[in-house]
């Protein structure tokens, strides 16, 4: 099983994050918890965010799914936890753009770090949703958390 295609999609970085996910497990405290699913395949993620003073204080998650969805969520937590919210949102934009590029975008390692390993996945439209599951959950939860803060102030 060493065809070029497999090597492109299943990068060692992805397999490592899948086998040994970072920041996994739901943690307290948190502002918002969301549950997102991929209805075509049954993958799911429960994700919590804590946003404090304009910082992504914590992102914790639990879920089940394929290697792509699990590894992508793990990579995401590495990229976003501790970052200023504005930077986290632009990282989100960069990952989204990469995944929607159908393999045509050269990812910026300075921005996406381990996330560049998913460039190959973008060539497989059926798997792009897997890669975006955790990212979309984070965006949703963060939007809710920001809205809560605005209401409170």
């Amino acid at each position: 099983m060493s065809t070029a295609d497999t090597d492109t999609m299943y990068q060692e970085i992805i397999l490592d994050h899948y086998r040994y996910p970072h920041h996994k497990g739901l943690r307290d405290p948190y502002d918002v918890e969301v549950h997102h699913t991929n209805p075509t395949c049954g993958d799911e993620v429960t994700l919590r965010v804590q946003v404090l003073a304009g910082l992504v204080k914590d992102v914790s998650y639990d879920g089940q799914g394929c290697s792509i969805s699990q590894a992508s969520t793990s990579v995401m937590t590495d990229l976003l936890i501790g970052k200023p919210l504005a930077q986290a949102l632009s990282t989100h934009e960069a990952f989204l753009a990469l995944m929607q590029s159908r393999g045509t975008l050269e990812p910026d390692e300075n921005v996406l770090e381990d996330g560049i390993a998913f460039a190959g996945v973008s060539k497989y439209p059926a798997r792009v949703k897997c890669a975006l599951l955790g990212w979309m959950a984070w965006k949703d939860a963060t939007a809710q958390a920001v809205a809560q803060t605005k209401e409170a102030s």
Partner: peptide, 19 residues
């Protein structure tokens, strides 16, 4: 995961459904 099974089988030219 079944998705990974299906993807890996596709690399061998084998079409199965997953999900």
């Amino acid at each position: 995961h079944p998705h990974d099974v299906g993807q890996s089988l596709d690399d061998l030219g084998i079409a199965v459904r997953v999900g």
